[in-house]
C-alpha cells in the first residue's frame, strides 16, 4: 500500500500539477491560433513575465508587513493578471497588429513572435537578474499531508499548497472559459471567428474586439499559468521558455484551435512525462515474494531516464504529427 501512495505522490500529484500548467498555457496558445492563425511562440515568455510581475507585487505586499492566509504570490495574482493583460495588448498593438494590417503571412507573425520572445527574455533578465528566486523567502510553503486510515500505511499522501491552488484555479479557469465560450455573446463571436474569420466579419461581428478579448484571455491565462508554476517550483528567467515546446505540443496534440483539446493535450502530456520517468520497479516490489526465485526485479524500470523527461513531450508531438496531424480533436487549419 505504501508503494501505491508513493506512486500516487510521484505520478498523480506531479502529473496533475504539470498537466494543469501545460493545459493553462496550451489554452492560450490554441486560442491565439484559432483567432489570429499563427503560432504565438512568445506565449511561454509571457508566462515568465507574468510570474515576474506577480513576484514584484508580492514583494511590495510583503514589504507592507501583511500576513495572509494564502501565499502572497497567489493573493496578488488578479492584479498581476491585469498588468500582464495590458502588456499583452500593448505587444499586439506594437508588433503584431501592424503586420496583420499589412496582410503578412502567418509565418511572418511567427517570426515576429520569436522577436518578442527575445525582447521579453532580455528585459526579464535585465531587470530581474539571472538568479533563481522563490516566492517563499519570507513565508513557509504549505505542505498538506493526508494520513490514510488503513492498517500498515505509514506514508501519507502529500502535496504542497501551491499544487492544490494550481489545480483549483485551473478547474475554475477551464469552467469559466467554457461558459464564456458557449454562453456569452462575445464567446460565441470568438468561436465564429475561429471557424471562419471572413464569414464572421461579414455577419457583423466586431473582429477587432474579438482580437482584443483573445489577447485579454490569453494574457491573463499566461500570467496565471506562469505564476502558479513559479509558486510550485521556483522563479527563474527560463521558467516557461523551457516548457513552451511541451505547451505547443499539448496544443497540437489536442488539435490547434481547440480549447478543450488543449486541456486534454496538456494533461495527457503531463501524465505521459511523469509516467515515463516513474520507476515501475517500486510497484513490483510488494509482489517480490510471488515471483519465481530466478526473477530479480531490476533496480530501475523507468521507461526513460529522467534526463529525457522533456523529450517525452517532443516524441509524442512528432508521433502525433505523423500519425494524426490534426491532433486528437480535429484542429483548425490555416
Amino acid at each position: 500500500m505504501n508503494d501505491f501512495i508513493f506512486f500516487f505522490n510521484q505520478v498523480v500529484v506531479n502529473g496533475i500539477s504539470l498537466g494543469s500548467v501545460y493545459a493553462l498555457g496550451a489554452v492560450g496558445v490554441t486560442l491565439i491560433f484559432g483567432i489570429l492563425r499563427f503560432a504565438h511562440f512568445a506565449h511561454g515568455d509571457m508566462m515568465t513575465m507574468g510570474a515576474y510581475i506577480a513576484f514584484v507585487l508580492a514583494s511590495l505586499v510583503a514589504g507592507l508587513g501583511l500576513t495572509l492566509p494564502l501565499p502572497t504570490g497567489f493573493v496578488v495574482l488578479p492584479f498581476a493578471m491585469v498588468i500582464a493583460t495590458l502588456i499583452a495588448l500593448g505587444i499586439d498593438k506594437g508588433f503584431y497588429a501592424p503586420l496583420r494590417a499589412r496582410g503578412a503571412r502567418p509565418v511572418t507573425l511567427l517570426i515576429a513572435s520569436i522577436g518578442v520572445t527575445m525582447m521579453i527574455q532580455g528585459l526579464v533578465r535585465l531587470f530581474g537578474g539571472v538568479q533563481t528566486r522563490s516566492f517563499f523567502e519570507t513565508e513557509p510553503k504549505g505542505l498538506i499531508r493526508i494520513e490514510l486510515p488503513f492498517e500498515g500505511v505509514t506514508r501519507p499522501i502529500s502535496f504542497t499548497e501551491p499544487q492544490l491552488l494550481l489545480v483549483i484555479v485551473t478547474a475554475i479557469a477551464v469552467f469559466a472559459l467554457h461558459f464564456f465560450l458557449t454562453r456569452s455573446r462575445l464567446g460565441k463571436a470568438m468561436r465564429a471567428m475561429a471557424d471562419n474569420a471572413d464569414l464572421a466579419k461579414v455577419s457583423g461581428i466586431n473582429t477587432a474586439l474579438v482580437i482584443r478579448v483573445t489577447w485579454i484571455i490569453a494574457g491573463s491565462l499566461a500570467c496565471l499559468a506562469g505564476t502558479m508554476l513559479a509558486l510550485d517550483v521556483s522563479l527563474q528567467p527560463a521558467l516557461a521558455f523551457n516548457i513552451v515546446l511541451p505547451i505547443f505540443a499539448a496544443a497540437i496534440v489536442g488539435g490547434l484551435g481547440q480549447s478543450y483539446g488543449a486541456i486534454a493535450g496538456g494533461f495527457l502530456l503531463g501524465f505521459a512525462e511523469t509516467l515515463a520517468v516513474f520507476n515501475w520497479a517500486v510497484l513490483l516490489r510488494p509482489f517480490r515474494d510471488s515471483f519465481p526465485d530466478w526473477f530479480e526485479i531490476p533496480a530501475n524500470l523507468a521507461l526513460v531516464q529522467s534526463e529525457y523527461k522533456l523529450t517525452v513531450a517532443f516524441v509524442i508531438l512528432v508521433v502525433v504529427l505523423l500519425v494524426r496531424p490534426t491532433g486528437i480533436f480535429k484542429g483548425a487549419s490555416s
Binding site: L99, G115, M118, M119, L126
Partner: peptide
C-alpha cells in the same frame, strides 16, 4: 556586467521585429 550580457538578446529581438515591420 551580468545584466549587460542580457541586453544583446533584447537588441536582437528588437532588430527582427523592426526588420519585419
Amino acid at each position: 556586467n551580468a545584466r549587460s550580457v542580457q541586453m544583446r538578446v533584447f537588441v536582437l529581438g528588437l532588430i527582427i521585429t523592426l526588420a519585419l515591420r
